[in-house]
């Protein structure tokens, strides 16, 4: 399709997609790729230098930093994607229901979203984690709870906008049922609108999960997680500052990859923006 062709011609997008896919594969196959066990401490080799055996050295308990990074992908990146997926699912479901059927159900859903949105999402996440107690599942739940209202509203407004299009009116006049209109017309358009936001947001979710883990509110030791690793590095900063580099860079790279990909997707999907860029170039 045109979409893929255009995306392929965007070098930045191709690089970002490759980075994300490679990182995800590394995370999924971490047990095969990682040279060491990420949890088991070996006190006799603590703070080992970079070597063939330990490509990124070891931490204060003698655990291989590279292995911990690789296993950390499973927690941070995969969970961020799960969070995003669940948020999108809830948002699409409710947004399409509200936007398609309108009437009282629309009012109920939207007023509920209004209540949730009148509250800053960052504080809400903190409040939910605070009430449920520190744990990774609670962080994920909090993130979904704080985000779904926003997505529901975005998707609803997108649906309302498409419902006004003549091709949907045509299908309605013809007597097509709701599921046909939603499947054939609404979902493809709405999803392509929302995918940009979701991609951009995935970066923020990763930052959020690792930030909360850094505070000790998310992942509990000894599970490897990037924010958690930074927290451990914090305590030994004066003696071994290099420990801060690997996890921080890992977070930075993956977050930037998601953001650049989001920007590229927007360029590809929005012809107007494309023209603007062409003119500016």
């Amino acid at each position: 399709m045109i979409f893929w062709k255009r995306l392929k011609s965007d070098k930045v997008a191709v690089i970002c997609i490759s980075v994300i896919i490679v990182v995800l594969l590394l995370g999924i196959f971490a047990p095969l790729v990682a040279p060491h066990n990420p949890i088991e401490p070996h006190i006799n080799v603590k703070f080992a230098n970079i070597s063939l055996d330990y490509p990124l050295g070891t931490d204060h308990l003698g655990r291989c930093v590279l292995s911990r990074l690789l296993y950390g992908i499973q927690t941070t990146v995969v969970l961020a994607l799960v969070t995003m997926g669940a948020t999108l699912l809830i948002g699409t479901l409710l947004g399409v229901i509200a936007g398609y059927f309108r009437g009282w159900i629309d009012e109920v859903i939207m007023r509920f979203c209004d209540v949730l949105l009148s509250f800053p999402s960052e504080v809400m996440i903190l409040a939910i984690v605070g009430m449920l107690g520190p744990s990774l599942t609670h962080v994920v739940i909090a993130n979904i709870a704080a985000k779904w209202a926003w997505y529901t509203r975005m998707i609803r407004s997108s649906v309302v906008q498409y419902m006004d299009k003549n091709y949907i009116r045509f299908s309605k006049v013809l007597g097509c049922n709701a599921s046909h209109i939603i499947r054939k017309h609404l979902l493809p358009n709405v999803v392509s609108d929302i995918i940009v936001l979701a991609t951009l947001d995935t970066g923020w979710v990763i930052l959020n999960i690792s930030g909360l883990s850094f505070l000790g509110l998310g992942v509990q030791a000894p599970t490897p997680e990037w924010g958690m690793m930074l927290n451990e590095a914090k305590n030994i900063m004066t003696t071994h500052p290099a420990q801060m580099l690997a996890p921080g860079l890992a977070i930075l790279i993956i977050v930037i990859a998601f953001n650049f990909l989001g920007d590229s997707l927007r360029d590809v999907l929005d012809p107007k923006y494309n023209q603007h860029r062409a003119v500016a170039k």
Partner: peptide, 24 residues
């Protein structure tokens, strides 16, 4: 791309990492 990277890195540096690097 390079200029975009330079402009964008400070936005996406996790602030807990930035803080640590500053302290160090």
């Amino acid at each position: 791309i390079l200029r975009r990277l330079l402009a964008i890195i400070p936005i996406f540096m996790p602030n807990f990492w930035v803080g640590l690097l500053f302290i160090w």
